[in-house]
């Protein structure tokens, strides 16, 4: 009898283990709501895009993208945990469910898309750039013959270095590092002539790490613009839609002229599109499994895309980046709102 009891208990324990494991494969939305926190893959310290400030409060464009999703899903912009990930950690972390989403940092590529990553909607367009000390007197790729380039593994830039080198017969010598800070330190110590990464990140590195930012020049490595896109793991379409439309809400708000300041007034707008967008006329939120006013809540908490951009990386920040490709399509940029209906 005693033995029987023991056996039953073992069985029960095994069953318990199995149920916890099945729970893990439930929908991402339910998992997050149950947990009460959104887990976001952050970068390893790129001021302007994602880095904790002096008080340990995370700030940056990527961070606010995560906050927007947290507002939509949990109604609280601070219900986010940030997990700093290196370039090569982020994909496995996303695929295994260690993080719920990756904001911006990843370029939308065919290979990644086909291999278990779902991309939502581009929220940052930029070219890959080189940064070099001005003292070397080089400001275009064609003159870089024989240059040593610090490269971080786990990015598309490794391939860009190779492509550029082959295209212009430059014989570039890559020095490849595994982590972000090692790559940057190697560049500033003079181990490499140039540092390659996304132009935005270069501007951030220059503003935050260079002794005299004016001593460094940034120029495009290729004529091609990359679409940096918040990503989620494959296999959960509802979650992909939620992240996509949360990010889109920021862009759409800007195109409607809705800002953090005037969003309350516009709740009673006569424009049917704005009424649907803000949830005054219901339907949009419910279709995604969210509150109907999720877009209103996002703008109320964070403002629109333009406000976010200026605050973190634009003219109101040390990075002083131009809107460029990231302006609305009506202003000559590539940001295009999808239809909220």
């Amino acid at each position: 009898m005693k033995r029987m009891k023991k056996l039953l208990m073992t069985g029960a324990a095994a069953a318990a283990v199995c149920t916890t494991l099945t729970a893990a494969s439930a929908g991402t939305l339910e998992t997050i709501q149950e947990r009460g926190r959104l887990i976001c893959g952050a970068s390893q310290g790129t001021p302007g895009f994602g880095a904790p400030d002096d008080n340990g409060y995370w700030r940056g464009l990527d961070v606010e993208t995560c906050r927007a999703v947290a507002v939509a899903v949990l109604g609280d912009k601070d219900a986010v945990d940030y997990l700093p990930l290196s370039g090569q950690q982020r994909i496995p972390a996303l695929q295994t469910g260690e993080v719920d989403m990756l904001p911006r940092t990843m370029t939308w590529t065919l290979q990644r898309d086909a291999n278990g990553i779902n991309f939502t909607t581009p929220n940052y367009f930029e070219y890959t750039g080189f940064m070099m000390p001005k003292s070397l007197g080089i400001s275009r790729v064609e003159d870089m013959s024989g240059a040593t380039v610090c490269v971080q593994t786990g990015s598309t830039t490794e391939i860009t270095v190779n492509d550029v080198s082959a295209q212009f017969s430059l014989n570039l010598q890559p020095v490849v590092f595994d982590n972000t800070s090692a790559t940057r330190q190697a560049f500033f110590s003079g181990r490499c002539d140039a540092l390659i990464t996304d132009a935005g990140a270069l501007a951030s590195v220059r503003a935050s790490m260079a002794e005299r930012p004016d001593d460094y020049v940034i120029f495009p490595a290729t004529p091609y613009v990359d679409a940096l896109t918040p990503a989620v793991r494959g296999g959960d379409d509802q979650w992909m839609d939620i992240v996509r439309w949360s990010v889109q809400a920021l862009i759409a708000a800007e195109s409607f002229g809705i800002t953090q300041a005037n969003v309350d007034d516009l709740l009673e707008s006569d424009n049917p599109r704005i009424r649907r967008f803000l949830g005054t006329d219901p339907g949009n939120g419910a279709a995604l499994g969210l509150e109907d006013d999720f877009a209103y809540q996002i703008v109320k908490a964070l403002g629109n895309y333009g406000e976010m951009f200026e605050r973190n990386v634009g003219m109101d920040s040390p990075l002083k980046l131009e809107r460029g490709y990231n302006a609305l399509y009506t202003d000559g940029g590539l940001m295009f709102p999808l239809a909220f209906q």
């Binding site: 370039g87 090569q88 994909i91 290979q111 990644r112 291999n115 490794e158 391939i159």
Partner: peptide
């Protein structure tokens, strides 16, 4: 590490 990142075949 690099291969994993380029191919996703961890």
């Amino acid at each position: 590490n690099t291969v994993i990142n380029q191919t996703g075949q961890a």
